[in-house]
Write a protein that binds this DNA or RNA. Structure first.
Lengths: 351, 351
DNA sequence: TTGTACGCGTTATCAA
DNA sequence: TTGATAACGCGTACAA
């Protein structure tokens, strides 16, 4: 009996060489000549321990290349020191920047970040939430406010602190983000001022996507205020390919629109490229706008008129917010400002 | 004594409402009227249990919204069912696609993926490895073969199964990827065939980056074989901004080069844009090439000649490989083929 | 096929 | 300031 306690045993000669067990805290304690408790304190609450033991433990730990076992620690601590973020997709550079900023912020407070994307599948979303709950994330950052009801149910039952990031419409619940609606109002206003009256909107699907809805609303607000008819709206995915198709569809109508508002830069980039292929001059015959101000939007020809979103700031603020939420506090913050960036893809409406 | 065992106690009235404890497996077992062991088996090895108990347990679990505690499970299982991937940066769409494919593959085998990027900082890299080891990842996917020695030391000591992905040069250790060197040979060959003799190379920094080195070597191989002088080489970061500066620097030389080889599409995109600003005609006055074939490279004007890399396939194969490695097997596989994509940014050398 | 009891590695409590 | 010991929640021999 007690065999499992005998850590001095040499690797048994006749067996295959097996992966050697990683050193545990007891091993460190023994080498340092202190108790388990002292070793634990020396590493995670050094101020509670005499400098001498502290050093002895540190030395022993370094000597053994000891790394604490996160699973055991989580179990004892009843927190995992990890946070999950659920993105719609990882295939939009705007989210990559956001995630990076979020990760940086959490890292400062010693939290790890689980990144996952559901790629607009509700099933995937439920599965992701389930996995994150298994991992006992201490907090959850949700992108957008319009999550799957089932997923939200799971989150609510598990009582995991969570925040909504990205969108922050006036009437929505508290979240860290900006107003898609107001941003799109500016875009539309810009086009109307340029004399455009026949506008087509290339929108993302609005089910489970309050961002797409808010952007759509922003356009409608503004056209209606200006006494225009509601613009033709085409619904599609948020991809470059969808932008191509959208442009074709838009330009198949008679009379042709003079402006195409796209829900994202990705779509606008596709539309721009397809316009070039069709020989449609931008902006002389058609103005095109995007949304997000991804780095590439300034590299297209013509450069894209778009909405700049403070991605990094939102990522950092989301980190602040979820850290606060996990600490039981709650942060109120005003929506972030966005900025219309007027570039070459928009111009006066043709006569 | 034994008070902590009394799970029927009502929430104490006078205290603040606290976060209710999440249900444990015992709770499920009790509700299902079976033992802890049976409950455990019913959920993770259903075939070992009678259909009747299996169902009872499932029902109870669903009723309580039970989710297994990953930390406890890891501790008992001595594996975490998680894998880490260490990227140089998350700010290149090529890596985003790779990670997504990897994640998908691992997810099929019920593994979670920790994603982290060191952004070319060695310190960050060591910290990341340390964190991943704390989390007891069962395997590690390293992007590139040229990791920090210290980090590799940690990984070796911890004896964590790991694989190298992305690069796979002839003389390097086994890894899942493609030959950067051969790909760049093709690019250079293409330019030489177009009559270019004065070529400038805009390379990434080569310290700790075998990909940049291999690409550089590929260019040198080919120019030297063609009896040309070694091309002027400018070293810089892998960014759009660096591409802009690189182009300016390249075109400041007399005589000007007729072709600019860029180490990545990001750089090439910057160079292309800066050329437009300077009024340099591409490809009439200057041919420009990229590397990676990111989606946007086909949306630039002119479209970018570049090297297509089978990102998704590599991601999936990397998943296969690390799963195999964790199972104690090892996968041999030939390097993936790359493909030169000739588009509008390259043309005959000016007279 | 099921139940019991122990171990996984750490932190927290409580005495000393 | 330190040391002993009881959790933390789950998997799995082993016995029944």
């Amino acid at each position: 009996m007690g065999a499992s306690d005998n850590s001095e045993e040499a690797p048994s000669k006749s067996k295959v060489v097996t992966r050697s067990r990683r050193p545990r805290l007891v091993d460190v304690a023994r080498l340092a000549g202190v108790s388990l408790g002292s070793a634990s304190r020396a590493l995670s609450a050094p101020e509670l321990v005499k400098p001498k033991t502290r050093e002895a433990v540190r030395l022993a730990a370094a000597h053994l290349s000891y790394v604490v076992d996160g699973a055991a620690r989580s179990l004892a601590l009843r927190r995992s020191l990890s946070v999950g973020v659920i993105l719609p997709t990882i295939n939009n550079p705007i989210f990559a920047d956001f995630v990076h900023a979020l990760q940086q912020r959490l890292s400062e407070d010693n939290y790890s970040l689980f990144v996952s994307a559901h790629e607009y599948s509700r099933d995937a979303e439920t599965l992701i939430v389930e996995r994150l709950l298994q991992r006992s994330v201490d907090g959850l950052v949700l992108l957008g406010t319009d999550q799957d009801r089932k997923a939200m149910g799971q989150i609510a039952r598990a009582e995991v602190p969570h925040i909504f990031a990205w969108s922050s419409e006036e009437n929505s619940r508290i979240s860290v983000g900006f107003s898609n609606r107001r941003a799109m109002q500016q875009v539309t206003q810009h086009l109307i001022q340029l004399g455009h009256r026949r506008i087509t909107l290339l929108s993302g699907h609005t089910e489970y996507n309050e961002r797409a809805r808010a952007r759509l609303d922003g356009v409608l607000d503004t056209t209606s205020l200006a006494g225009l008819d509601a613009p033709t709206t085409i619904f599609s995915e948020f991809s470059v390919e969808a932008g191509r198709h959208g442009l074709r569809e838009a330009m198949a109508k008679t009379p042709r629109p003079t402006a195409l508002i796209c829900s994202t830069d990705l779509m606008a980039a596709g539309a721009l490229s397809e316009a070039a292929i069709m020989g449609i001059k931008v902006p002389e015959e058609l103005s095109i706008t995007g949304f997000d101000n991804i780095e590439f939007s300034a590299l297209l020809t013509p450069q894209l008129t778009t909405v700049d979103v403070p991605t990094v700031e939102i990522g950092t603020a989301a980190g602040d917010a979820i850290l606060a939420a996990m600490a039981g506090k709650s942060i109120e913050r005003a929506p972030f400002p966005t900025r219309l960036v007027v570039r070459g893809s928009t111009g006066p409406a043709p006569k």
